[in-house]
Design a protein around this nucleic acid. Structure first.
Lengths: 124, 124
DNA sequence: CCATTGCGTAACCAAATGGTTACACATATA
DNA sequence: TATATGTGTAACCATTTGGTTACGCAATGG
């Protein structure tokens, strides 16, 4: 079911059928994205880079297409995976809101914290 | 099992037992993060803002603590959820790598795409 | 001291996830 | 035309996920 409709740039309508946060939760899918980001690649070539079976990769790619991160271009019997990573903007913006948490080292919160982390009391 | 050990700022060691990408995949957990980011809140108060049960929220918060995004401060019988969002840096950086995908509107790829999206042929 | 509040957790459950093997089928290719 | 290649998908499976209710227990407050 369509959960979002976003219009990017020039009337390019992308129907998102799946939460992009959930799509990138899986490490294999992130690896696929890294792999095809700057070089389109057919499905079998992608699959050869992993230990899991070709159908498993096929499923992952299907999920990525469902949220628009990958677009398939059929070419003869081959299907090329093209990265369309505009959807990652949502993730980038959400995390950017919290950028102060890792850029400001010594805000009041961390000062407070350091009081109990001075002694690195540890667990197992 | 500990999957990462990161040292931030001043010898503050965070043991990450869970992938942060997976932790933020759930919309409820993202809502919790938004809620406590700038104002610590005890668990029951967090739970009151959701339709799901208090134990369900408790589980979500446990997951968030397992990847270091939230730290619990016990205060009497109450447990305050404090946001420690440094881990989101990993997500922010990964998505930032692909920023050109949504900032450069007219790279060769999109030009090509517009050829087939000019007519918004549609599906349901 | 007793009731209430705030919380963790166990036990349970349905659905989603991530993998597999087996098969079908269209496109290349010899 | 026969075979090999590239791929989707069905059927199946174990595990994980996200929720519930029920219970226990320490801290608070009357």
């Amino acid at each position: 079911m369509v959960t979002h409709i976003l219009v990017t740039g020039r009337l390019q309508v992308i129907k998102v059928r799946r939460d992009v946060f959930q799509a990138i939760a899986d490490p294999t899918r992130r690896a696929i994205i890294n792999m095809v980001a700057y070089q389109s690649m057919n499905l079998n070539t992608v699959a050869e880079n992993f230990d899991i079976s070709r159908p498993a990769i096929s499923k992952h790619i299907k999920i990525l297409t469902e949220c628009g991160l990958i677009v398939i271009k059929q070419q003869g019997r081959e299907r090329y995976c093209e990265a369309h990573l505009q959807q990652l903007q949502e993730v980038n913006e959400w995390t950017t809101h919290f950028k102060t948490f890792w850029t400001q080292k010594l805000d009041a919160l961390e000062n407070f914290l350091e009081q109990d982390t001075n002694k690195p009391t540890e667990n197992k």
